[in-house]
Amino acid sequence: MIPASFDYQRAASAEEAVSMLREHGEEAKLLAGGHSLLPLMKLRLATPSVVIDVGRIRELSYLRDGGDQVSIGALTRHRDVETSELLQREVPILAHVAGLVGDPQVRHRGTIGGSLAHGDPASDLPAVVLALGGTLVVQGPGGRRDIPATEFFQGFLETALAPEEMLVEIRVPKARGGWSYQKFNRRAIDWAIVGVAAVRNGTTGVALVNMGPVPLRASAVEQALAGGASAADAAALAAEGTDPSADLNASVEYRQHLARVLVRRALEEAGA
């Protein structure tokens, strides 16, 4: 498998990446770790004429304690998120789930920003950032803006990123309360057939993996919990508002069933 030809450009900073995006428009793709883009290019499902390598922007790889939140540079690799003592202490669900992405080799290259910007509903990290109520910081020609995670994922592989914008930082609130991540798949390396992230942090945030064209919050579950419902009763509402697709691994009905079971298990484990 060989990608189609393209021009390769390397950005030294987010500003430079954004100006390259401006210059090349929709023909260009940003390349971070490459684990979302390169597989598509090898299959020639993606044929950008310009690839802008942002993988060298070291200043976008960091984990910072920001008081009541943690700021993570978009180019921080999964492996660094997984092993971050700061996250293990302050946002343990995020460190844990970063360790479930792909396989070790993928985690050595793939980045949290790449995973979120790709916006795959089957991917683990978007749901976790959603459940945490995180914020995504993007940089465009006019400077930076914040986008709440709840508004970031807009359609299948579509995000609130404008063509000339780049994701530069992810902020998540510290969440040392109970949490659970339920990843249901057939092989360890596979995408989740259904996944559930639950975080207790004052209120309980619950988000679903692969239950629709976008990563979703289980709003009905959250509201029921906020209204005092038991974990079991709240979990029964897990499929409300979801729009899962059918594929080789699961029918719509089975996914909805799994969502209910896994949300219940997640809430029980998180102590909600």
Binding site: R186, R187, A188, D190
Partner: peptide, 28 residues
């Protein structure tokens, strides 16, 4: 438990990669 070459009604093989055709790893 894992493997199956799946064809749809139009005769398209839907498990032509190792992401769709589930050869188990050591973890399974």
């Amino acid at each position: 438990l894992y493997e199956e070459a799946v064809y749809d009604q139009d005769g398209n093989l839907r498990t032509s990669t190792l992401t769709d055709y589930l050869v188990p790893s050591a973890a399974e």
